[in-house]
Design a protein around this nucleic acid. Sequence first.
RNA 1: CGGAGCGUAGCGCAGCCUGGUAGCGCACCUGCUUCGGGAGCAGGGGGUCGGAGGUUCGAAUCCUCUCGCUCCGACCA
Length: 445
Amino acid sequence: MRLSRYFLPVLKENPAEAQIVSHRLMLRAGMIKQQQAGIYSWLPMGFKVLKRIEQIVHEEQIRAGHIPLLMPTLQPADLWRESGRYDDYGEEMLRIRDRHGRDMLYGPTNEEMITDIFRAHVESYKQLPLTLYHVQWKFRDEVRPRFGVMRGREFYMKDGYTFDLTREDALHAYNRHLVSYLRTYERMGLQAIPMRADGGPIGGDYTHEFLVLAETGESEVFYDSEVTDLTFGDREIDYDDRAQCQGVLEEFTSRYARTDETHDEALFNAIPEERRRVARGIEVGQIFYFGTKYSEAMGATVNTPDGKKVPVEMGSHGIGVSRLVGALIEANHDDKGIIWPEGVTPFHCGIVNLKQGDAACDSACEALYAALSAKGLEPLYDDREERAGAKFATMDLIGLPWRITVGPRGLANNLVELTSRRTGESEEMSAEAAVARIVEIYASV
RNA sequence: CGGAGCGUAGCGCAGCCUGGUAGCGCACCUGCUUCGGGAGCAGGGGGUCGGAGGUUCGAAUCCUCUCGCUCCGACCA
């Protein structure tokens, strides 16, 4: 993409309404525009990141054997009356009436609807196990939306639902999700720690939240410092292997790690003092096993091998896709702007032409642009008639992890400059070598 | 939902207390000079002062109502 033809409305000054760094940077980098309290338009750059995150989520879900579908944002109230949540949910649920006077709602989550789909089409245990998920907009009419997309009223979430015959099967589905989530977050360049959590309105006694450590996090968290040493890495996982999934769960959840909701002072104090940590975290996902809470209420049953009819065992699992955009920035920025991890960056690298209009600089940049594109990479070429300082400042703000700088000084020796946004380190090399290096970097992402 | 505050040009703000035909910086447009870390000079365009009502000869300014947004707290992917 050529910056001169893109739509990237960056702001030089900080918008008054943004208090936390991710919100500020998203506004300044032209990623979002607020339309109402807690409701945002996603401008091209922000939309790109959102889609990159969503794509990683899809890939990892499918890898774990889960099946994508899409449910609507608007749901009939009657489904929620069946589960009893139409009355329980309260003011947070946005209620709507259509022209025929039918009660509807903008879905805050989809347990009822997925259960409806299940009961309509599944009769036998032979169709289990089954995990269906979608990535869809949700609405929760928060009393006080804040922190930009981290706590919007409208938000984009992946929510998945598991259906199993037995509790053991359902717990394996739970473990499988925990494993796939660890892998998902790590691919985005994030460390998200599974912490024992509270059931909340969805219900269920078996649940973990995934927390990204950040000063601006809304939850207070308590953990054993050993949990932050754990990495998922590129280990091979057979998602049908119960023992292996159970093993990963134990590895990642056996040390103390809890939010303030479930914090236990006595257990915490049993950790050696030098390993005790109290910090703040952003919740970017949650997994639940809740058994037959919805299947019983809504008559979602299956026939067992011995001819009985039993309510199906269920769980639900969520990843806050739009919230992750904010969380990623909270975890990856400096005083100049965003620093995207390679896994989610909106463009793979920036090309800065220091002397637009200079024949040598222009053609060198065009050649770089073509060479990178030919390798399947997406560069952002700053071809504006701007001074060097302005171009650097823009690149630093929007946070592309790699920048190739092309100027007359280097070109005289056939050299361009490759700079890491994260470390700030620069290296001079030929244009061909720079392309090769970028290709190599992204080959391993 | 309790408490506090803010709406003036695309963005950041001053002006309001003490009423008299709206200003600064950035951005934008034109020209010249500049050109490896948000350039300089000169010229220029752009504002129903959130909205409605009221007081007044006269309202951004005072009063009433209303809408929107933000912050602190209680609640949540």
